[in-house]
Amino acid sequence: MNVFRLAGDMSHLLAIIILLLKIWKTRSCAGISGRSQLLFALTYTARYLDLVTNWVSLYNTVMKVFFIATSYATIYLMYLKFKATYDSNHDTFRVEFLLLPVTILALVLNHEFSFMEILWTFSIYLEAVAILPQLFMVSKTGEAESITSHYLFALGSYRLLYIFNWIWRYYTEEYYDLIAIIAGVVQTVLYCDFFYLYFTKVLKGKKLQLPA
């Protein structure tokens, strides 16, 4: 554990808390992509099945349980409790275009051809692109509420901080995991456009609005 990873994890935690609070306080999930949230739930389920096979630390276990539980809580809020506020007309990204390539890639490019390892690899590749339905939704409606922007910023920062963590680990532990690194870089790059808008608009008090 180093400061970059801890900051990354905290950023991830913050993103989820922001999202849940937004939905809970406003009693609405408008502007949030249910498809991205389904992909995140699938990501954490596939990756954290090792909860029962691989003990790392109490911190690790608590965080994994939190990520799995909150991803399903989000889905419950979106698809059941506040279903009437879910903006499904704008949430139309075809997730099979992500799931199919990610599954094939996980079967071909992995560290070891075993069930748990392929699930882990699948989750790493899927997480890298899971935000695309959300970004697609923002581009389709041309805007995002400030609170949604803060959520996206915290979520994007998390993998960026992990990249610093991987650089740190490479120099201090000689540890590196190419699959995680490449997928993490792809994941972060997908947020670049959004980061630019966040700094130039949202932080100056303006709403995130895309040029028509």
Partner: peptide, 10 residues
């Protein structure tokens, strides 16, 4: 060197 399939990160 790479630690094989030791996923200690989240």
């Amino acid at each position: 060197s790479e630690v094989e399939t030791n996923h200690d990160e989240l």
